[in-house]
Write a protein that binds this DNA or RNA. Structure first.
Lengths: 337, 337
DNA sequence: GCCGCCTGTTGTATCGATAAACTCGGCGGC
DNA sequence: GCCGCCGAGTTTATCGATACAACAGGCGGC
């Protein structure tokens, strides 16, 4: 392996000068600079990032821990965040937690080893005192565990957004709704275990809207959260007691539901209206295109970066909890003929 | 920051003993082990990965560089690969190259800094001597640049797969085909610039199949490679000279085409048949579901890991170039009523 | 003409973990 | 009863880059 010392020897200067030339942190004479760059090029020198970050105590890398990499929502989040952080001179690396509290805790703990200057944690299961786990590592949480304490947090308007989504269906005349992805109805207000997760909050929003609509009913159908689970829910809905509107708590589920309803012979929007949540890119181009709650992706990414940079600069700053503005985007899946 | 020395002092042993207890590389007495673990826990000790990898020369991390994180194909690849590498005790981190040769070259160069023990490069634009760029870093390339020299490579059966996809349409009676995502037809055999990329290879496969079918014609429609570009292609096809079969060179394009054709009032499969390539998860659940060429994802991941581990163990081994077996998966989009 | 200052360069110590060599008490073998 | 060996632990040196202080030399000011 070629080290700075090798380059220094080849260029006839000290290692420190090589460092100065390559980082540009100190002035160097043009001749020396040229000699160093030439030697570095010729030897194929590569800076050792482990050595640098050991010495500097920083890496210039931000981690993003997501439940799974193959869900469109997280992929799109990662893409946006990577692009935004690049503008700050930071690299993003993404890793997968497997959607388990243990995986998420491990991601936080491991990140304290100094591999990242900061961590964006898209938590679905982890609760409790994340700050204690994170130590002095700057962490910004996404997702909706109410008991994510003492960390900066960027949230969505889950309740309000879902309420608006359900209200849209009700406005379009639906009276027999189904919620796909909701926890069992009777658990919505229980504290404990999963209190505060996005699914529960969104389900509450739907319930609120239904309660406010005279004559409307709603039932929960839940078989998981993956695309294929949505398909199964859609089939179950087509086969069971008739419904005229479906609120799917994520777009991934909603896209599955579209498929499942088609399997069961129901047409959207002719027989049933469907609305999703998250406004993933695919929602705009599915057949039929999917109405969805857009949680303000760009604003969220902006806030995540702002909070992260602020905490990296001021470790002791007070925690912030911000919620991005949402919008309901109406598309074919809720448009009455 | 709590270091090993701090833990050692607290436990009344030497730092080396702490290291031995925590890594388990040497036997230690039960009492000492307990004392060390207790102290480590109490002080909230976290191993510094920079220091470890500086000393060890390895990190236990494999990098995956993909053009973009928000394309379903790459997200799904990342998910699969992460899961598979976890079984080998390796972590995967993913980064985005922006689909540019510069971004890809930068990913390779940066990875030589010792951040990763190996790199999986999903290249779309990078050509030339990747080995020279990579130096001693183990690299396994995915994607189809023919001039990716002197690196291990896991490929798809692009020509054969695309030929089979087109053959499927021809078998179903299509005679006026369109290829979406193809380079301009007259460039298919040109050497140079982009010779060998997946789109060109796949387009050639389509051409081969059409040439072998008496009376069949084909034209290329290309406006980009993103989902939205597929939509525009679909609309253009619906508006232009009639076609009865579409080969989209990626599933992402194909899903867009389905939407675009619907916009143009054409029904799939009644008016037009559509087949994609990649067999992303969404293909199984779109409406209509999408026939696609499955490039053998699991086999590919298996081979990638095998080649990577082999090269990490034997840096001087001869380069291998393997191609996974493909299969055409037929779904609704090519099924005649 | 001497002094302080500025610019460019160099030694030295250090970041934290660990490989390798070394120490020491106990124990079985001949 | 002595020797060599083994297990458990310690010491020392090192991985590669860089913060920091020290240092050489040129130059303008009084």
């Amino acid at each position: 392996m070629v080290t700075m010392r090798d380059v220094a020897t080849a260029a006839g200067v000290s290692p420190m000068t090589v460092s100065n030339v390559l980082t540009g942190r100190r002035a160097t004479s043009p001749e020396v600079r040229r000699a160093v760059l030439e030697a570095s090029e010729r030897l194929g020198y590569r800076l050792n990032v482990a050595a640098r970050s050991l010495r500097r105590g920083r890496t210039g890398v931000v981690g993003l821990a997501v439940p799974s990499l193959d869900a469109p929502y997280f992929g799109q989040l990662a893409g946006r965040l990577a692009a935004r952080l690049a503008r700050e001179g930071l690299r993003l690396v993404v890793e997968q937690t497997g959607a388990s509290p243990e995986g998420e805790a491990a991601a936080v703990r491991d990140s304290r080893g100094g591999a990242y200057d900061g961590l964006v944690l898209s938590a679905v299961g982890l609760g409790g005192d994340v700050r204690a786990l994170a130590g002095d590592l700057p962490v910004v949480a996404l997702g909706e565990r109410q008991d994510l304490r003492r960390v900066d947090h960027v949230g969505m308007a889950n309740i309000e957004g879902a309420r608006a989504a359900a209200a849209l269906l009700l406005e379009r005349g639906c009276r027999r709704l189904a919620v796909v992805g909701s926890p069992p109805w009777e658990q919505l207000d229980e504290p404990g275990g999963h209190d505060g997760d996005a699914f529960r909050l969104r389900a509450r929003g739907v319930r609120d809207a239904v309660r406010a609509a005279p004559g409307a009913r709603v039932r929960a159908v839940t078989l998981g959260t993956a695309l294929e689970d949505g398909v199964r829910c859609g089939r179950a809905l087509a086969a069971g007691e008739p419904v005229d509107g479906v609120v799917a708590l994520t777009d991934t589920l909603a896209l599955g539901v579209l498929r499942g309803l088609a399997d069961g012979g129901l047409r959207v929007p002719d027989d049933v209206l469907v609305v999703g949540f998250d406004d993933v890119r695919e929602a705009a181009t599915s057949v039929p295109s999917l109405s969805s709650v857009a949680p303000g992706h760009d604003a969220m990414v902006e806030e995540v970066v702002r909070l992260l940079l602020r905490r990296m600069a001021k470790p002791a700053a007070a925690e912030e909890d911000v919620v991005a503005p949402f919008a309901v985007v109406e598309r074919e899946s809720t448009r009455r003929a």
